[in-house]
């Protein structure tokens, strides 16, 4: 399997990145190289092997439903690139 520029462009859109034509070429070449390398995993027979998403052998970790102080609004909004007194601001959200 090898990666085409169109594949990379689609992924860039999915990941909300905008690549210049030059970046797109370099990225396609480099990603393809890594993908080719990674395909060596196909050699292994992993049938019957349980996927391992965590190494921590833990389950049922909960916190009690007890209120803690929230951030003061100014502290919450302090890092916002654009805001008013109450909210974060973004270009119009279209649709719903």
């Amino acid at each position: 399997m090898s990666l085409s520029k169109a594949d990379v462009e689609k992924v860039a859109s999915l990941a909300r990145l905008k690549l210049t034509d030059e970046e797109l070429s370099t990225m396609t070449r480099q990603l393809d190289q890594v993908i080719q390398y990674v395909q060596q995993l196909e050699e292994l027979d992993t049938s019957g092997v349980q996927p391992m998403a965590h190494t921590a052998d833990l389950a049922n970790v909960f916190a009690d439903d007890l209120l803690r102080a929230s951030l003061p609004r100014d502290a919450a909004l302090a890092n916002a690139p654009k805001r008013d007194d109450e909210c974060y601001l973004v270009p119009p959200v279209l649709g719903d």
Binding site: F62, S70, L71, R73, A76
Partner: peptide, 25 residues
């Protein structure tokens, strides 16, 4: 009032981590 009930976790700030609410489950 808007944005008065938030913290690093629900703002999704870098480094913050979720812990599941026992009662919700």
């Amino acid at each position: 009032e808007p944005n008065t009930q938030t913290c690093p976790v629900c703002i999704g700030m870098p480094g913050s981590l979720p812990v599941m609410n026992r009662q919700a489950y």
